[in-house]
């Protein structure tokens, strides 16, 4: 079992997200992460779902997704050269004069930006793949993470090939 990144092009209609996610839970899949938003076509949206399962199960869920009338195209990006990114916002305890400098150093190494500063905490914004974000989280934990929020992974194939809306 390994994580699969599925890119799902859907009609931009009410209820589509619950049709898609409902299918995952009904067929016994756990969704690791989910990201959804508008895409290159104004009346479509693209959902990226990361789920951990064996290849056969993923094939079955893709076929089931394809059966949804509002799903236009489903691709498994896994195994293809691709770019995957996630954005995280991390609120870390950082009292003035204590660990602040260390935290800012870590931020620099991860090319994270500091997007909010208050007397007792900092908010870091980091962009990267899941591994990078989790590495950063691990490093920051010792200082005290007050809140951690992630967008979920989005992914896209490298090169000119693109997912297009004809099933």
């Amino acid at each position: 079992m390994k994580p699969h990144t599925l890119s799902i092009l859907v009609e931009n209609k009410a209820g589509v997200l619950s049709r898609v996610t409902g299918l995952f839970s009904r067929r016994g899949f756990n969704i690791e992460s989910l990201a959804v938003g508008p895409c290159e076509e104004p009346d479509m949206s693209r959902i990226t779902i990361v789920a951990i399962a064996d290849d056969e199960k993923v094939e079955q869920i893709m076929k089931q997704l394809n059966k949804l009338i509002d799903v236009i195209k489903v691709s498994d990006l896994t195994g293809n050269p691709r770019v995957e990114r996630e954005l995280a916002l991390i609120k870390v305890t950082a009292e003035v004069g204590t660990s602040r400098a260390e935290i800012m150093q870590i931020a620099e190494i991860f090319r994270a930006s500091i997007v909010d500063v208050s007397p007792k905490s900092l908010i870091l914004q980091v962009i990267g793949d899941t591994e990078k974000i989790e590495a950063m989280e691990t490093l920051l934990r010792q200082y005290g993470i007050k809140e951690f929020v992630r967008t979920g992974t989005v992914g896209i194939l490298r090169g000119t090939k693109a997912q297009q809306g004809n099933k």
Partner: peptide, 14 residues
């Protein structure tokens, strides 16, 4: 009813 019948219809509309 569209929510209730989502898993037991081929498709549904409101």
């Amino acid at each position: 009813i569209t929510g209730i019948t989502m898993p037991i219809t081929k498709h549904n509309y409101l």
